[in-house]
Amino acid sequence: MNGVAHAWLIVALMMSGLYIVMASAHLFKKLIGLSVFQVSVFMLYISLGVVEGAAPPIVEPGVDAYSNPLPHVLILTAIVVGIATMALALALLVRIRRAYGTLDEAALAAKDEDA
């Protein structure tokens, strides 16, 4: 019998992503943590649509049980949003590094104090 153990693992992964976002002092690593956070949310969604023993939602004659296509569609959109956010954030990091010479949060704050 299947249970909800997958949800526990996904939540644990999600929280490690969130922890990296908040705990890291380095802006680049925060971004990496953010992508782990997002990936685990994607898995939570997809796991909602699984039907045991069913086929992928591509209609074929002779198959009558399919997995739920709606979470798939939503997550396709969310993946795109994720890479869009990441590209933008990387461009921001390039500019920050060039303007300040560092990507460390504390060092950044210190540089603006004396400016």
């Binding site: 992508s35 990936v39 997809i46 796991s47 399919y66 396709l76 993946i79 994720g82």
Partner: peptide, 24 residues
């Protein structure tokens, strides 16, 4: 990210797996 693409495949989300592997 690649492992999650494998998870998506197991979960019958082939389009999502494809996209995650290519993008993520």
């Amino acid at each position: 990210s690649l492992a999650s693409a494998a998870v998506f495949t197991v979960m019958d989300a082939v389009d999502v797996a494809f996209t995650e592997a290519a993008v993520g």
